[in-house]
Amino acid sequence: MSTPQNSIVLLNRLLALKESAPFLLVLDTLAQSAYSLVQEFVHKSQTKEVVFLSFETVNRPIYATQFVQCDSLSSQAIIERVHALLPPSAPSAASTKSLVIIDSLNYIASEELSGFISGLMTPTIVLVGVFHSNVPRLESPITNYPQPAEFLTYIASAIFEVQPLVTDSSIDGETLEYAVENLRLPIKAGLNGAVFKLVLVSRRKSGRSLTYKFVVNTATHEVEILQEQDEVAANDDEALLKDLTTFNLTTNKKQQLAKDQVELPFLEAQNFGPGGAIVYEFEKDDDYDEEDPYEDPF
């Protein structure tokens, strides 16, 4: 079990491109854009070579050493451009790899996606690709062929799902989903901000994947573990009980565990099985009258 500290270390290593993870997928929504997280990649990795493949960005980022307008190029042409800019045969002695950012993978046809990703990959680059989740999907012309979102999450070494950190407590998940469906994003709720939630799915070499949740602040470049809702609630209760009297009313974790393990009496009776609530077991001291036609059968 990795400790919370380990997970933060892992995230920072991924952001710094230090983990051996060739393809990193960022999933964003209309409520929270991937833009800020991509900035964080650039900031943490301090990499010297950044190739920006633009399908929807018009303003060339300052950090981009190369900026390629891809919207009118074919997938093959893009791959050739990238290889020309970052020759794959360069010595991999450099400690940090080159970063290739794709601002949106939604513009590539689903049948071409696999060829595109594998064509771009070389040992010296780390590919960070953004995929917008709310773009309407199209059935593949080939039956059964997987949707781009499914395919990308399958091949990615790590998946960064950004979600909004909603500052308005009246907006719950359902309200937000409904608002996004109608393209009416809530305002003054912290959407599309520099501080957001991140759900990281990291794939180990064995194939096993682990999920971690963070709150990322790209303004201060700080990362912390996301405190889940019920944990927060429990903490509140404890705080209340502590200062009530001079008696110790709190329960620490060991005591809580012991409490949970106590077998409560009549628990079996509370579980209503099929048939009646009463369970009768015939034992050696009971006697059964076989000649009485009205005796209870069991």
């Binding site: 209309l30 854009s33 929807e56 960005t57 949106s104 939604n106 917008h132 709310n134 773009v135 309407p136 999907r137 199209l138 059935e139 949707q147 996004v180 469906e181 109608n182 393209l183 994003l185």
Partner: peptide, 30 residues
């Protein structure tokens, strides 16, 4: 609002609801 559908899986690339939603959603992202 009646002519857009964000969660649609369109069977044809020429479906007008799909095309209109595709354009609007991508516009909001950029």
């Amino acid at each position: 609002p009646e002519a857009i559908d964000v969660s649609t899986v369109a069977s044809s690339a020429h479906n007008p609801v799909y095309k209109a939603t595709d354009f609007l959603v991508k516009m909001i992202y950029r």
